[in-house]
Nucleic acid binder design. Structure first.
Lengths: 341, 341
DNA sequence: TTGAAAGCGCTAACAG
DNA sequence: CTGTTAGCGCTTTCAA
């Protein structure tokens, strides 16, 4: 009672009962007399007692906590997924321990390591950059679900992602329906997600008989990368300029829009732009991007639910959920201009 | 050894030494023979031993973890602050436990509660919505620093914020220098930060002899709120329309820009817009907002350092740091149009 | 340099 | 209904 915070022991002393009874009462066991319960609750209250989660988790050998690793909080996609995760976790009585490792795989690994030391019961990795063997080692120890990637090897890992092939197809279909034919794709670089989107684009172009007009420009997933890629796509290059751009993600698409405007062209009058992700940008009207919207929140929830399932049924087989994106037609696409070319 | 994860006990057994020696060796004590150390390290390695943070923190009565509560990950300001916090914390050997409570005070309080149960040694509250008395109660138990607000009562609470009065002044000075006189302020609603910015605006206007032209329009901190406020400011109202808008934060400013454009006016040719916060928007070129930039990362670092100081010197007096914002002149401000008025 | 023992705050049988 | 006892995994005196 002297120094630190009050413990269950102090509460017991003050209420004139035993430690165990306090423990029971505090967790709402029915086999505690009303009288004792009241005394205990009162004692706890005026001592300002707060259970020690470390001690509890040590005793029960469960932390009721899951770890979430997120690549980067700056891309609005991730907070959106996180919302879904947190909701589902919270309603199931789990706490969330959130860490960010930046894009540095080593740092990410050490963050995951520290999550494991905290005895998290499961892991949700959102857009991680961990090496496959590291990932497998982790998943062997604790139920793991990966969000945003579906290329993870090993049957012990759940995945939740959206169908990038279908999504890219939606974008192309939309542009083709608007009369566009010279549709360039600004790729997102050398990662599985971006590759899938490019492939979806190519497939769709071929499906529309536009195989020969396929044009993929190397780019990246940041707005700067999108900006540069757009410039090179629209620049004095091989053949006539595209009338539409399908960009690997929304951040890059915003950069691309800026580049188009810098070149003295208008969006969507001269060039249509379609992004991918469906970020809300806080509802940002100023950048009213037509985009392939992933069901971000739903992906988060699904991930959390899958994980909880695995935590409760450790021997369950891994599930791989692929959700379907939908096209959000907004302000950056329009019918191809009648004139010119 | 049978069921769960290997413990220090298993390592001891395998290395043929006692638990205590393992503990020493693992924490790099010099008073362990090279021989034992090697054996222990080897044993730990091939058992895949990982220390149990809960047990450790129970034994040492320190968690080496600080809790961070963030209002809302969707506003890019907060991840930016968080970066600074995490860096400073990490380099000082602390882990971060990050939680979000949305804008619901009750939820925030329960999240803080759960942080405390995890025995965090300190708390960093970024833009919280906790009631003053709740805040005070928390701060009485654990070192606490509040970022983004400086209006917190009680001497046990550190604060880190930017000087909103000065910042608002910078914005007004800039606009006045560009020849603007009818500068309206779109307020951010009824919270201390927004109030300070409005007051800074009014003071600066008076300093420039423009006291009679002060015009404050009620608004909010979201882009929708900014949008609506801008419409009402520019709408058919009392007297001539303003040529410049000073908006309570960047999100709202982006909404305001959109509103201006919807009204058929151009930014910055017809109307200049200045925001507040200095969010990077991932470097978003498409919304190249002139803004009063807070030193976000630095605020985070400062907060973390203050907290660590308080953790190490519990009796230290609270510090209130106010950092100075700077004006970032970008694409949404220009000299006032010569014509009209 | 090493080990035995006690204890951090809590839960969980098991008796009464 | 209630108390006793024995840990959970780790650190930390204190002796040897």
């Amino acid at each position: 009672m002297g120094s630190g915070r009050p413990t269950i022991h102090d509460v017991a002393a003050r209420a004139g009962v035993s430690k165990s009874l306090v423990s029971l009462a505090l967790r709402g066991s029915p086999r505690v007399s009303e009288e004792s319960r009241a005394a205990i609750l009162a004692a706890a209250a005026d001592l300002g007692y707060r259970p020690n989660a470390a001690a509890r988790s040590l005793a029960v050998r469960r932390s009721r906590t899951v770890g979430v690793l997120i690549l980067d909080l700056h891309n609005p996609v991730f907070p959106e997924i996180l919302d879904g995760v947190q909701d589902a976790l919270r309603t199931n009585g789990f706490s969330t321990m959130l860490v960010t490792g930046g894009s540095d795989p080593a740092l990410q690994q050490s963050e995951v390591e520290s999550l494991l030391q905290f005895q998290v019961e499961g892991l949700i990795l959102i857009s991680h950059r961990l090496a496959p063997e590291v990932l497998r080692a982790i998943a062997a120890e604790v139920p793991t679900v990966v969000v945003t990637r579906s290329d993870v090897p090993g049957t012990r890992i759940d995945t939740v992602s959206n169908d990038d092939l279908v999504g890219a197809g939606l974008a192309v279909d939309h542009l083709v329906a608007l009369g566009h034919r010279r549709i360039a794709c600004l790729s997102g670089g050398d990662n599985p997600v971006s590759r899938a989107r490019v492939q979806g684009y190519e497939t769709a172009m071929e499906r529309h008989g536009l195989g020969r007009l396929v044009r993929t420009v190397p780019g990246g997933l940041t707005d700067t990368a999108g900006h540069d890629a757009a410039r090179s796509a629209l620049g004095t290059g091989t053949g006539p300029a595209p009338t539409a751009l399908f960009v690997a993600n929304d951040m890059a698409a915003l950069g691309a829009v800026a580049a188009v405007q810098e070149l003295g062209l208008r969006v969507p009058d001269d060039v249509s732009v379609v992004g991918y992700d469906g970020i809300a940008m806080g509802g940002l009207r100023s950048v009213d991007l037509t985009t392939v919207a992933q069901p971000l929140g739903e992906m988060g929830e699904t991930a959390a639910r899958s994980l909880i399932h695995r935590i409760e049924h450790p021997r369950a087989r891994a599930r791989h959920v692929t959700l379907t994106p939908r096209l959000a037609v907004r302000g950056t696409t329009a019918p191809v201009a009648a004139a010119g070319s």
